[in-house]
Design a binder for these strands. Structure first.
Lengths: 337, 337
DNA sequence: CTGAAAGCGCTTACAG
DNA sequence: CTGAAAGCGCTTACAG
């Protein structure tokens, strides 16, 4: 079942069938109808590989995700789902590639061999070898997150530094004097994971500017680590009355630790940070936080990628989003302040 | 940069380059070395579309996922990650397709036009139109979950019915008399979602066999619904002392409701069900539950799919897994029993 | 408005 | 052990 068979049955040439399908050349109404009838009857679909080979484009985007071993956070999951959705809206498919660990082969397979027209990369390091690889391959790509040099490539990101600064100022305004940053894991920070590094720098700088005493701790991406981390904070720095976090996965454990320590939020302790809105609202009480607009970011990333694919010589563009901080119920005046 | 260029530079024919790469015909060691040197120097990768067109296979598997609008559960997420991982281990890529809602176009694009060699489908309904579509297309597929007729197709599933039965018997053994099933959402049950329907049937039947009074309630896939659902249970059936659930996403809300009702688990109330192990262990206290072996199921699904692709006339095979119920700390004797 | 033909970059019988 | 050539199923200048 191929285009030749359709042409034969419709009594036209293969090129006419092709043009009737693509609309790239006028075809008489009667002929179009005859062709469409045959196609509908036989349930014909053009062979995607043949089309990709002839056209030089696959209409497929690559999406590089963290490996299965690392549990995806809620925000990361939103990125994946929204990228697929946005690509589908433009009639593009999404090819998945786990990266990191020993997944070089999968990454390589997806980004070479003209398998995809472009790639979306997430979980970006300040110096990311995958970004360098794609750059040297000359394959269009957009990162969700950005490497150190902002002008070097196409990206969308949330202004982690700016948002964390505003969280700290908010706590300072409420009279807090001793604050802590609950960061992502040691490993991520050590590997130069952008949001973690930028959040730390902004947190410490802003705390200094506001005259606050600041501590920062790394915490693995799971509830148990969140609990342990909070207990550590309580025993080492009992004077701390507020925390800022970018670690969503640790939140259930932080919640439990607060409860066990008999600390009421926000009466005894304030909590804020950069958190997916669904998680912020599920917290008890709902968290005052900057919501990461994951869906919007994913859509923007797809738009930028398609733009770049359409005009490969375009100058790199990017978008640094600064979502508003949503005031919910997890921050309050320092007790006795 | 194509196979002809490599051949020219290595001073051999294109077929020799092809055979050197595939190993499907003996090539002299010296020639292989010369070819490999040229390939390494130029960073050549065969064009995947051209290869797929010539070979008649894409080395790509389709994975149909729920749309972004419905939040993926932890187990579903594990399926996706593990399918990608297992496919990569066999040098296959994974093409994603959201389905459900108005995603017919994306599903259609992925399953037609020879875009993939086979498809893995999850979130199966007892009567699933996508299964019918794939069957009539003659495209190899494996479902995670199974339709009503077990012999009709290739699948892997967890024996929800059997596991729920064992949960109920476990509660009966502990002296509980009044039990409730916290099911997935109304919509899922109404649409004939396999696990929900099978869990309900097994729950009610086993409760009757054990002489228990049984209630069952539907609950949306989020914490807020879990909280509301549990409050409903408390106000309508205060005599209930144990719950069975297959709704992971509702658990945080159930936890909060238990806390607000000042109910200690397992002293005042027992809780069990079929739950991803990570979630079961994050609960407080850790849940006695049947852990869905998502990674193993995904791997099995990929194995079955590749087997089917390799021998399209093979008789359908399937695997019904019955993971052990892990005894943790969330079930105990009925108070005063 | 339509057709015949070249070309996309591979693989694989066919020949030697 | 190697090469020349056909073929996979499309798209798109070239011609009319």
């Amino acid at each position: 079942m191929n285009i030749g068979e359709i042409a034969r049955r419709a009594g036209v040439s293969r090129s006419t069938v092709s043009y009737a399908l693509s609309g790239k050349r006028p075809v008489s109404a009667a002929t179009v109808r005859r062709i469409n009838d045959v196609i509908a009857e036989l349930g014909y679909r053009p062979n995607a590989s043949a089309r990709a080979l002839a056209e030089g484009k696959t209409r497929t985007l690559g999406l590089v995700i963290p490996p299965a071993s690392t549990r995806l956070t809620d925000v990361q999951l939103s990125f994946v789902a929204s990228v697929v959705e946005a690509a589908a809206a433009h009639d593009h498919d999404v090819l998945l590639s786990p990266s990191g660990g020993d997944h070089h082969r999968s990454f390589d397979r997806v980004v070479t061999g003209r398998r995809v027209d472009g790639v979306i990369l997430m979980e970006i390091l300040l110096h990311d070898p995958r970004v360098e690889r794609l750059t040297s391959l000359g394959l269009p790509f957009v990162t969700i997150g950005h490497v150190e040099d902002p002008a070097a490539s196409w990206w969308v990101d949330v202004d982690y530094g700016g948002l964390i600064s505003r969280c700290v100022r908010h706590l300072a305004d409420l009279g807090h004097r001793d604050v802590v940053l609950v960061n992502r894991s040691d490993e991520l920070v050590a590997s130069g994971y952008g949001p973690a590094v930028r959040a730390t720098a902004a947190f410490l700088r802003t705390a200094r500017e506001c005259g606050l005493t600041a501590h920062d701790v790394c915490c693995a991406d799971d509830p148990a680590a969140g609990l342990a981390c909070f207990e550590h904070i309580r025993s080492h720095w009992p004077e701390v009355t507020a925390a800022v976090t970018i670690n969503e996965a640790a939140l259930p454990g932080v919640q439990r630790a607060l409860h066990q320590a008999r600390l009421d939020v926000p009466r005894d302790f304030s909590l804020t940070g950069v958190i997916a809105d669904r998680l912020a609202e599920d917290f008890h009480p709902p968290l005052t936080a900057a919501d990461v607009p994951a869906g919007q970011m994913a859509q923007l990333a797809v738009d930028l990628l398609l733009e770049q694919i359409g005009d490969r010589s375009a100058t790199p563009r990017h978008a640094l989003l600064a979502p508003p901080i949503t005031l919910r119920s997890s921050t309050g005046a320092r007790r006795g302040a």
